[in-house]
Design a protein around this nucleic acid. Sequence first.
DNA 1: GCCGTTGTTGCAACTCATTGCAGCAAGCGG
DNA 2: CCGCTTGCTGCAATGAGTTGCAACAACGGC
Lengths: 155, 155
Amino acid sequence: MQPDGSPPRSESRADDVAAWESVRDRLRARGLRWTPQRRALVAVLSQTRGHVTGADLIERCREQDPSTIPSTVYRTLDVLEDLGIVRHGHGPDGREEYHVLPDAEHGHLHCRACGAAWEITKDEGATIVASLEAARGFAVDLSHVTIVGRCRSCR
Amino acid sequence: MQPDGSPPRSESRADDVAAWESVRDRLRARGLRWTPQRRALVAVLSQTRGHVTGADLIERCREQDPSTIPSTVYRTLDVLEDLGIVRHGHGPDGREEYHVLPDAEHGHLHCRACGAAWEITKDEGATIVASLEAARGFAVDLSHVTIVGRCRSCR
DNA sequence: GCCGTTGTTGCAACTCATTGCAGCAAGCGG
DNA sequence: CCGCTTGCTGCAATGAGTTGCAACAACGGC
Ligand SMILES: [Mn+2]
Ligand SMILES: [Mn+2]
Ligand SMILES: [Zn+2]
Ligand SMILES: [Zn+2]
């Protein structure tokens, strides 16, 4: 129930390092290639935790290499998402947001009035997931869920 | 639990006619103006039921008047949403979708695998709304909720 | 180390949506 | 009917993201 102020960057933890180092092999295991452009994006991602937009990532890649091309970044993000390395959701405006190495799967809650945001933890989300599972046999992707409304203090 | 195949257009019902006719007065009551551009969009909307994207609406306005300007349409949609005449949600890709005179407030459910879509009825949504209300005092806007995952037959 | 296959990149064009601003006009008051 | 105020429109620029395609290059095989 804390406002969502997760810092965009932080130092990598030891077990995260391993996760990033495996990316190359995971790509090659699927017949995909380990290119300089992908290396660059993975390097940026490995310095990142929490939430980032595609545009953020492009900007950060450009800091390293100004010749970075947006479509390449977005296509690489698609590939990394297929591999389960990142996941995306959408802000209240529909804009994409990537979850990078989240400590736990979670959704998002946004107050339309004050703009504050919170994470919907896996526990809290369980109610939602269970109800659609029971009613329709539907498997909810909690990390893609964004719920908008008014928070307690704005009501 | 029917796939969401709501037809984009249909004849207006008697009580809907009244709703659209009141738009002019509702605008003026707020000190806003009843312009030819707004008249045109309201005319298009009054021929519409179910879900439409902003781009759809622009296209339909252009059929009547090719000089229609996108920003004017989007701004008018914002005004109409303020007045509670339309509401928007977002598709799984984040693109805007307007609900026009829905029979009842509802959310949306999309299968990532087969692309099928369903409405989350107010009853079904009640579980979600109630859990966030109880846990956080948060008032969920069900019509803005889009949940993505895998449907029973795609699992 | 060279070659060929095929996954990737760069690029340009395009879609959807938003914003700042100057000129325009709806609607009110006289 | 006229003029003023102020909300609205048109337009041009901008931002986010996607797509088709031809040239390129990763990397497995020889
Ligand atoms: Mn929205
Ligand atoms: Mn999505
Ligand atoms: Zn709030
Ligand atoms: Zn499905």
